[in-house]
Design a protein around this nucleic acid. Structure first.
Lengths: 130, 130
DNA sequence: CGGAATTAAATGCTTGTGCATTGAATGCAG
DNA sequence: CTGCATTCAATGCACAAGCATTTAATTCCG
């Protein structure tokens, strides 16, 4: 049994992750004033129409801790991209909802996001070179 | 042209990264008192015999900024796993070298590292199920 | 040779993150 | 109904990471 395979693919994963994340951070930050996690959250919320999410749900989606997400939401809320709503059935829970501004910013940033991914993730996907 | 492919593979990459990184952090931390980046640096230095590396070189290897690595080295140095040596040819440069203790800790942690990778990264590699 | 531009690494500062705790609301058992 | 355990989200706290700056040594060019 050769661990080398796994180690290699882990290293490659790390490299791809670092490169892409970094590029996203730069592009999204410079052009739209968003961090990668910010975008990821908006992206998730923009996907569905109702747009009501529990904090923990979002935390799982973007692979952040509950506390990190709580603060992230606070920042987005302050920026007006998201709002918190009391949820009637369970009053300790909170519904996070994307605002119109949020949808707008997300829509603006989306092409940038896709572009970076295409540029940064494409090379190793299918072999394009004949 | 469908961006969905790229987006999906990015999300999968994020998920794999988060899961694996998290597991490594926990296991390496609990069992050996090492962070993932700590291990990554030691792992890199343990590979070669001479074991002399420039700071920037290591920074590239583990995908961290130069400043982050400078402090990381400081921590490892304080822990006695690594030492800094003046490099004679260029006196602003620094050679970082793994110590015997460092090699020892690395050797101890290596099985844990491999185990986590095998467990956490295997599922999606080759299809084992017939 | 001497001064300007460059490079290596360290440090000040700010920020995002995780862990642990807290506070509030719910659920469950007696 | 009362009390205890559980759950959701927010907050205190500590820390690692990146950016910008600093300090020191080197290189380049006149």
């Amino acid at each position: 049994m050769d661990d080398t395979d796994v180690v290699d693919s882990w290293r490659e994963l790390l490299a791809r992750h670092a490169t892409t994340w970094c590029a996203l951070e730069r592009e999204l930050g410079d052009k739209h004033g968003l961090g990668v996690s910010d975008f990821e959250v908006l992206d998730h919320m923009a996907e569905s129409d109702h747009g009501k999410y529990r904090v923990q749900e979002l935390a799982d989606a973007v692979h952040l801790s509950q506390s990190a997400l709580s603060r992230l939401i606070s920042r987005l809320e302050k920026a007006g991209l998201v709002c918190r709503n009391m949820c009637a059935e369970d009053r300790r829970g909170v519904f996070v909802q994307i605002t119109e501004d949020g949808r707008h910013r997300h829509a603006e940033a989306l092409p940038t996001h896709r572009a970076v991914l295409n540029h940064s993730l494409a090379p190793t996907k299918p072999s394009l070179a004949p």
